[in-house]
């Protein structure tokens, strides 16, 4: 990896007490991974896998029991590091008494990173970029869920951060909105910003992310390049054949083979039975299938 390491997480452990039973719940069990500049890293895991807890521990919104996090090569989360980070939380609720413009100016001022004279211009540019220029002077209480998500993304970008964390940024967005957010993510990454985002939309992660971090029940099951993960999982083959006993005009049937040996055996068997092979093709396994295998299959504990 030639890119610079923006974040390094090592051995993060976090446990909570259940508010009802006071039972100890281990949310993170020694999670370690790295995030690189100019790279889009997808953060995947089933509900309750520990994604949001990890993000909160990164930003010291919750304190890890053990483990270390370093930002931009320095240990711990200093104010200097924070000024380079943009964050959109899951299900964001914002100050609904502010207008979209006031909201962005407020976060721009808090970042301490952009000159006062530049905040107004930057705010206007971002309102246009997220498609909210028409609603900039309306209070946030009148915004739809999708509009709130867009203004939330704008506040994460207001100070031109070097690292952005987006927790479920596609939630509440229509297909157009999701496309727009994908484009924004690609755009900021192309400018050298490290993007770390969690999402339930695996198709978005597959198309956007160069790298993936996958959690399962508080443990890391994969960290690395998306193409490496995809190549680790073998493709399947689909054999389209015409059964001689089928009625004339019936559509071809499909047989599936998961290994090369099985493919040969299947073809031999079909030919011996008098079937006509119409087509043999490979079927690429989607990230969704791989994710489901990793997240729910008890056998796939490690994919590293």
């Amino acid at each position: 990896m030639t890119q610079n390491k923006v974040v390094e997480v090592s051995g993060l452990v976090k446990s909570y007490r259940s508010p009802m039973t006071r039972k100890k719940i281990e949310a993170l069990k020694g999670v370690s991974f790295s995030i690189y500049g100019g790279t889009i890293t997808g953060f995947l895991g089933a509900n309750g896998a520990g994604k949001t807890t990890t993000i909160k521990c990164l930003l010291e919104l919750a304190f890890a029991d053990q483990g270390e996090v370093s930002f931009f090569g320095k240990a711990g989360l200093s104010n200097e590091a924070k000024s380079k980070i943009g964050f959109l939380p899951e299900r964001p609720y914002f100050y609904d008494y502010l207008t979209g413009r006031e909201f962005l100016v407020f976060y721009g001022q808090l970042s301490g990173r952009i000159a006062k004279s530049d905040i107004a211009t930057r705010t206007q540019n971002l309102l246009e970029r997220v498609g909210l220029a028409h609603a900039g002077d309306r209070p946030l209480r009148g915004y739809s869920k999708g509009m709130l998500q867009r203004i939330g993304i704008a506040q994460a970008l207001i100070h031109k951060p070097e690292f952005i964390i987006l927790d479920e940024p596609m939630t509440g967005l229509d297909p157009d909105g999701r496309h727009e957010v994908r484009e924004i993510i690609r755009e900021v990454a192309s400018q050298g910003t490290a993007v770390f985002f969690s999402s339930h939309h695996l198709s978005d992660a597959e198309s956007l992310c160069e790298r993936l971090v996958i959690l399962k029940k508080g443990e890391l099951v994969f960290e690395g390049r998306t193409d490496h993960l995809m190549s680790q999982v073998e493709s399947t083959w689909q054999i389209s054949f015409q059964n001689p006993k089928a009625l004339s005009g019936a559509p071809p049937e499909i047989a599936v083979a998961t290994t090369l040996d099985e493919l040969q055996t299947q073809i031999d068997r079909l030919r011996a039975s008098g079937s006509v092979i119409r087509d043999v093709g490979t079927k690429k396994v989607s990230l969704e299938e791989i994710f489901i295998r990793m997240a729910f299959d008890p056998k796939s504990e490690s994919g590293r």
């Binding site: 919104l61 104010n79 000024s83 976060y107």
Partner: peptide, 8 residues
Amino acid sequence: LTLLARPI
């Protein structure tokens, strides 16, 4: 959450 993620 968004507030404390800023340098304050």
